[in-house]
Simulated assay, not measured.
Amino acid sequence: MLPQLSIGIFVRSEKIAGSAIELLKGERYALTHIKSAVEFLGFLKQNYHLDCLVFEDNGDLRSLLSKLQERSLFLPAVIFSPQPGEDGWPEVPPSDCFEAAAITAEKRREQSCAFFYHPAEVQLAIGRSSEIAAGIDRAIAQFLKLSTPVPVNDQSARVDATTQLTAQSLLSRQQRRLAEKLRERLGYLGVYYKRNSQIFLRNLSGSEKQKFLEQLKSSYREIVLNYFSQDPAVNNQIDEFVNLAFFADVAVTQIVEIHMELMDEFAKQLKLEGRSEEILLDYRLTLIDAIAHLCEMYRRSIPKEVSQGKM
């Protein structure tokens, strides 16, 4: 049986929620309807492997989504917007629904932000709720092409580089997980990773560079300490480390340098304890594993057309 797409529906309106559930029921989707913000945040914390979220634009939506942004939790999203004639929106004939959607989008932009959650979200007028399945497909497709959850503008200028890189890392993990599920369902070929050169390691200020390298070294230390523990969580730790390095365009030589610095620290500690340093030789496997994952990320970042020599 093909894997189902997991959809989280956080819509308070029983009418809208009922319509969405009716339209999406079937073997393709696994649906979860959540009514309260507290329940939603708790559920998402335990079920981050949802494939798409469905929201309703109401007075609390921006506050809720800001909490997800603060936690660097990004997922494909479809957001139902008020119909024309409701909440102060202008009345337009049903035949002008596309024009109404354009008016809605323009008014959103005038309200200081073109999106609620991230640039790849899909906003759908409530009157077009019958298009929810197509909206989900479009939201997932746009999400897989999303290069950064925080666009380069005044908003991102207030976010330090390490926070941006962490968000980028978590975004890429979610994109890769979703792409793998779609590969099983649809034969999807993969994700082309786009990066923001402004947060490359070489382009950071001295203090930002130091802060990021400290975080990278701390992350690698955790991998080394847990590598031979048979704890499955170490695979996630390697993913997080590699993603951080990839989106900061860290060179393989920098990874080797971090590894050698840690080995020197551990060697000094072992010497103080009167123990042999030979055990540290085993951790060459850790370095090889991390470099192999990083090289694979760099390989997959090349668009298929380029890798095949096409322009």
Rank of each mutant, 00 (worst) to 15 (best):
C52V: 07
I288A: 05
L146E: 06
A290S: 13
L61Y: 00
Y220Q: 08
S36T: 15
A141H: 11
G26R: 01
F228R: 10
C97V: 06
L61Q: 00
K217H: 03
A30I: 03
N203L: 12
S19Y: 13
F74M: 06
Q69P: 02
N226L: 14
K45G: 15
T286M: 12
A133E: 15
Q4V: 11
V54A: 07
A125D: 11
L24G: 02
F212A: 06
V11E: 02
L189Y: 04
R138T: 15
L144G: 13
Q210P: 00
R176Q: 09
N226E: 11
G274M: 09
I132Q: 06
P303E: 07
A134H: 05
L65T: 14
Q155S: 12
G135T: 03
L294C: 02
I255D: 12
I21K: 13
S19N: 04
G206R: 11
Q142V: 03
E240R: 09
T166Q: 05
G309A: 04
Y117T: 03
A161F: 07
L50M: 10
F212K: 09
D289K: 02
I132Y: 09
S13V: 12
S95L: 10
V252Y: 01
A267G: 10
R71P: 00
L44G: 01
A248H: 00
T163D: 03
V256W: 10
S219G: 03
M297W: 06
E278P: 02
K310L: 14
H293S: 09
L262F: 02
G206N: 13
M263L: 13
G274Q: 01
Q237A: 14
F200Q: 01
G190K: 00
E278K: 14
M311L: 14
Q83P: 04
Q123T: 02
R108A: 00
E265C: 09
L23I: 08
P3V: 12
K67N: 09
